[in-house]
């Protein structure tokens, strides 16, 4: 990863339209079936997957930016591509959280912010969504223990 490329990537989302770029209070962006109210992340369009619903109309909605920690783990080794590859010595293991959103009744995965390891996590902790860059400078959503 060259320094120039990394500079160009700063502030650019890793996935277009998956989350708002609000630095203080970012939200994941999903859709919601206007007929039965089921939420989808990533966004679903076309046909509702609830077997009892014939809905075909969806609205884009910001998902709750806080939730309860359902479970967690870590990536001790650098994941294969398309995860951005860095030198073996430069790879820093990170934690991963599964967070339960109460209003949407769904669980969403994401990395945990840099500096928080599994030893400081417990199921049930209140987590909040933040944005942090990946190794190539592109922004992604991450979970952080709520203050």
């Amino acid at each position: 990863m060259s320094a120039v490329l990394k500079e160009q990537a700063v502030g650019v989302p890793v996935l277009d339209g998956w989350f708002t770029l609000d630095e203080q209070r970012p939200h994941l962006l999903g859709t919601r079936c206007t007929a039965c109210g089921t939420y989808y992340f990533p966004k679903l369009k076309g046909f509702c997957r609830n077997p009892d619903c014939n809905g075909e109309s969806f609205e884009e909605v910001p998902l709750s930016r806080t939730g309860k920690l359902w479970s967690f783990t870590s990536a001790a080794y650098q994941p294969p591509e398309p995860y951005v590859q860095v030198d073996k010595e430069a790879f820093v293991p990170f934690a991963i959280a599964a967070v339960e959103l109460a209003k949407e009744k769904m669980i969403v995965l994401g990395q945990v912010v840099a500096g928080t390891g599994v030893e400081s996590l417990r199921a049930g902790l209140e987590m909040e969504l933040v944005l942090e860059p990946l190794a190539d400078g592109k922004l992604t959503w991450k979970w952080k223990v709520a203050a």
Binding site: W70, S74, A75, Y83, A98
Partner: peptide, 17 residues
């Protein structure tokens, strides 16, 4: 994979649960 979630992630989440 782009955001760092590999196959063992899922089984580890179930195990931690």
């Amino acid at each position: 994979f782009r955001i760092g979630i590999t196959n063992p992630t899922y089984f580890a989440l179930y195990a931690r649960r």
